[in-house]
Amino acid sequence: MIAKIQKYLINSTEDLGRSIIEMVNGLGLMTEFAGRFFYWAVRKPFRFHLLTEQLYFIGNKSIFIILLTGVFTGMVFATQTYLGFKIINVDSLVGAIVAISLAKELAPVLTGLIVAGRAGSAMAAQIGSMKVTEQIDALEVMGINSIQYLAVPRIIAATIAVPMLSIVFLFIGNLGAYLVGTTTLMIDEALFFSKLGEFMVVADIAQGVIKATVFGFIIAVIGTYFGFQVEKGAVGVGRGTNLAVIWGMVSVLVLDYFLTTFLVKIL
């Protein structure tokens, strides 16, 4: 009996250790991958048409869901904070609080999560299936570096698109909060804006944009990395896509914490 328990413990520890080592390995490989991105990003030829294509895919095509999520987030948040604020009679601060929270946290993080789910998975799937059908080999044989051709445009596009989407989110979220606040919640309109101006600073928006930029970069690096790692056919593609989404989202949330503490000190 004891022997069984011992065996189980040993096995579990081994598994755990192995997983940790694998993860650290993976992190190292990803860092190397990111390094290669930087290497190829600054070399000719510069394929701007690919960049635009990716910007359109990651940016424009996400607009609808960003608008939807943004406006409802703003409305819900305004409603929730109103309930609490009304009790101590500071309901005029709802606009300010919603705006600041959106700017610093909700817009970048939610946008990041949405993009990780949408674009991050797409990147892994696209590149993964290309790998499995030898299309990447075809590129290489033709003398085209697959990282430069596939990963660089996507990563740059995401780094640009996510902050833009985040700003849109922020704007539409505030709009939603304003509409709900002044119609359903009966917050005084003049107070809404004056308190907003009093408490919010440009630095708040800047924080959010910086975060969003980092998120965009990370999501794309993870997405393309897992795409290139795919093996073993359809199953591999599915797995790679899954990993890309999960790690993309996890990274967004974890980085959010570290960025917040870091940015608070600078700004």
Binding site: I167, V168, N174, S194, G197, E198, V201, V202, I205
Partner: peptide, 13 residues
């Protein structure tokens, strides 16, 4: 959007 929002909050800037 950014420019618009910045204007709205620059009462103290």
């Amino acid at each position: 959007a950014i420019v618009f929002m910045s204007f709205k909050i620059t009462s103290n800037q």
